[in-house]
């Protein structure tokens, strides 16, 4: 009851007294929890290692410079693999994810009761597992290499594209759908004329965005043996070849920058 009468005038407050107390109590609990957690973490940390962290970091950095630029010659192929993993994975995800989105969206699914929950389950399953873990599984199923990486990226991206696209589908203007229906159009025509044009910009944006994410994700897939530049990184680090690792870090940085710039340009052009 935020409105009360005090000495004849109406007073408005955002919350009533009990809600206000509950809010204060909530803050108290949250603060206590932070302090408690800090204590637990502090107890289990070997502070002597942390204390000389800056020395270790400086030491590592010292061993990384100067980068061994000649190593670049052996990076072009893995870099090309990485780009291919990301691009092919995204394409496969689009091919699978678009129909999935239409099955999952409330206003396009053939059956809200049976097909929709199934499609949503597939989307959640795909999204709940990181592509690194997909890769880990796939490397043991189909063996190490680029193929495992492509499929890992695709499996993770299907859910991403499916989810964002079905949400876009559910948010379209139903007025246009009604109008096209009232012309006597068939269901596929209603989808093609009233829905597809409305989600086209979202679709393009989602795809490019996912491709951009996949470039970043595919750089680490090699750590578990799924091909690409991560494989080289793994090798360099385990050989303590820090001057090679730093070259790889820089290559990844430049690649990600380039892909982000490109995807921003593409999205800007579409929308």
């Amino acid at each position: 009851m935020p409105v009360s009468v005090r000495s004849g005038t109406k007073v408005w407050q955002r919350r009533d007294r009990n809600t206000q107390l509950a809010v204060w109590f909530g803050w108290l609990v949250a603060t206590a929890l932070v302090v408690l957690s800090w204590e637990v973490i502090s107890e289990r940390t070997m502070w002597m290692f942390v204390e000389d962290a800056h020395i270790q970091a400086a030491d590592l950095l010292g061993r990384m410079v100067p980068p061994r630029w000649s190593y670049m010659d052996r990076l072009w192929q893995p870099l090309w693999d990485t780009l291919n993993i990301a691009t092919l994975g995204t394409l496969i995800a689009i091919v699978l994810g678009v129909p999935l989105a239409f099955l999952a969206a409330r206003n396009t699914t053939p059956s809200v009761l049976f097909v929709r929950p199934l499609a949503l389950l597939v989307i959640v399953a795909s999204r709940s597992i990181n592509s690194l873990i997909w890769a880990l599984l796939l490397v043991s199923i189909i063996g190490p290499g680029v193929l495992a990486g492509v499929i890992a990226i695709a499996l993770r991206s299907v859910g991403f594209i499916g989810k964002l696209l079905y949400e876009a589908l559910e948010e379209i203007d139903e007025g246009a759908v009604e109008a096209i229906e009232s012309t006597g159009a068939s269901r596929p025509q209603v989808i093609g004329y009233a829905m597809v044009p409305q989600v086209a910009p979202a679709f393009a944006g989602i795809s490019v965005f996912r491709w951009d994410i996949n470039i970043r994700e595919s750089t680490v897939l090699g750590l578990v043996g799924a091909g690409g530049i991560g494989l080289q990184l793994e090798a360099s680090i385990s050989q303590l070849a820090w001057r090679e690792a730093s070259v790889i870090f820089l290559v990844i940085l430049v690649t990600v920058l380039a892909s982000e710039w490109l995807s921003a340009r593409i999205r800007h052009a579409i929308i």
Binding site: A176, A179, S182, Y193, P197
Partner: peptide, 14 residues
């Protein structure tokens, strides 16, 4: 039966 709408109900991007 042709239908005409208050908010025009055109497909904006077409």
């Amino acid at each position: 039966m042709g239908m005409i709408f208050q908010e025009f109900a055109l497909v904006e991007r077409l």
